[in-house]
Design a protein around this nucleic acid. Structure first.
Lengths: 206, 206
DNA sequence: ATATGTGAAATCTTTCACAGCG
DNA sequence: CGCTGTGAAAGATTTCACATAT
């Protein structure tokens, strides 16, 4: 598995490949080709082959790719062939929806701590967990060695929460707040902001 | 406003610029530079200048950009200087969280119809709206001339819902279901899938 | 016959660096 | 002087097209 600075843009496509392959597997399909996979997700066959070739030779000439084998390889590459514990900060509407979403667990992401600073929310249930006091956040996260956090607090509090998460040892943040976070080198952030996605589409309308 | 096939990658950055500028405006800042804006959102100053220059000359040499003027211009370019009506399909946990999220309205996106096919959910409230029967979806959407839809149904139903939305005249879809949608040329789709974002980050962990 | 893996070519995107203007 | 707007250069990404393997 040779790995010398593979471009981020390649990495960003791998989860889509994995998702599509899992879909094919669920439909009972054993073998696929870069062509078929590409049509399925709207990416050129050459690009898929080139992307995968960065990590090894997973296909067979004249035959294509074994779906289960490629799923295993991609899970290994993406490091999702294990359970990842996560912390959720913000127990509002969105936080509750996320706490109840089964999709995380199905993909090996387990929410094990939920925090809020609102005394009304602390002690309440969210999903199967009890909302903890945000004051204890840094200690509890550090103690469990959690590396992934999700932020669902209002924009005005998001940067402070991010700072606490980084202090607690979090290395990856999924940010639902509509604000760009400032984090140290080596901490990864991904943004989930529906407004931005909508604005990317209205541009093309009418 | 000369517009001859500006790359999608440029368009995709404009909402981030707008978001950052609105943030600056809220803080009372009147003027900014490509340098300052770039540091704020982690994009090079040259890139911001080049992107904006595709649409006109919005800055003043030696001075920078007037924040409010640039906000106005970006809203015009992105066509968000108006109210957009939207339809939401899927009144589960996530659908309810979205229906209650004030951020949409604050940015001119108004959810005016919510559908579900579950008899238990039809007639119930979601946000300030009543959940309608999905059977009536195509007619009601077409009648109101709505162009933007959000999908929060399970993956297994998402493609069928997308097909109905397209039939109803929807031209932009924000898809929360973990599946790649197949839509005709000219219909835009953006994906909101937290699992994929998490997998993009676990790659870099450990 | 068919589909991979991959150098080379084509295309796209970003950065550089500076003329020009307030 | 400071910062924009922008050609040109550098760099990154995608596509092509084919040798190769089954």
């Amino acid at each position: 598995m040779p790995e010398k600075s593979i471009p981020d843009i390649v990495v960003s496509r791998l989860p889509r490949y994995l998702q599509a392959l899992e879909h094919l597997a669920k439909d009972g399909i054993q073998t696929t080709s870069s062509q078929e996979l590409g049509e399925f997700i709207g990416i050129s066959a050459a690009q898929i082959r080139k992307d995968l070739s960065q990590y090894g030779e997973f296909g067979k000439q004249g035959k294509g790719y074994n779906v289960h084998y490629l799923i295993d390889k991609l899970r290994e590459i993406l490091k999702v062939n294990r359970i990842w514990e996560m912390v959720l900060v913000g127990a509002g509407n969105l936080g509750h929806a996320i706490a109840n979403y089964q999709g995380f667990a199905e993909h090996g992401f387990r929410i094990v701590l939920i925090f809020d600073s609102d005394p009304q929310k602390i002690g309440q249930k969210a999903g199967s967990l009890i909302v903890q006091d945000a004051n204890q956040m840094v200690d509890l996260i550090r103690h469990r060695g959690i590396k992934i956090g999700m932020i669902t607090v209002p924009a005005s509090e998001a940067q402070a929460v991010a700072d606490s998460l980084v202090t607690a040892g979090i290395r990856a943040i999924l940010n639902y707040a509509p604000i760009t976070l400032s984090v140290p080198q080596g901490v990864h952030v991904q943004y989930v902001d529906p407004i931005i996605y909508l604005q990317r589409m209205t541009y093309y309308l009418e």
